[in-house]
Amino acid sequence: MDDMIICRCEGVYLSDILKAIEEGASSVPGIKKRVRAGMGYCQGRVCQPVIRDMLESKTGGEKMPPQQRAQTPVRPVLLDDMIRR
């Protein structure tokens, strides 16, 4: 299949992700730290399930590959809104 963007926010291509898996990434955060997939506005809400499927089909473990842990703030938030008391 032609190369294509997987992480729309950060413009990360399928080939980038496959390369990261090749290099040893076995989790969503591992991919993210290598190629920035999931680091953008949507915080992996769009690409994480796809990447997880890719990892699963590549590494083929019994357990689903680890996903990234949700952390506060769970959504992008204006600093102005964040610091209101």
Binding site: P73, V77, D81
Partner: peptide, 20 residues
């Protein structure tokens, strides 16, 4: 209104509205 954090029992932090 976007909820960006829940903590304690409970505080719900919000963005975009009048209440923080």
């Amino acid at each position: 209104v976007t909820v960006w954090a829940v903590s304690g029992k409970w505080r719900v932090d919000m963005a975009g509205g009048d209440l923080p």
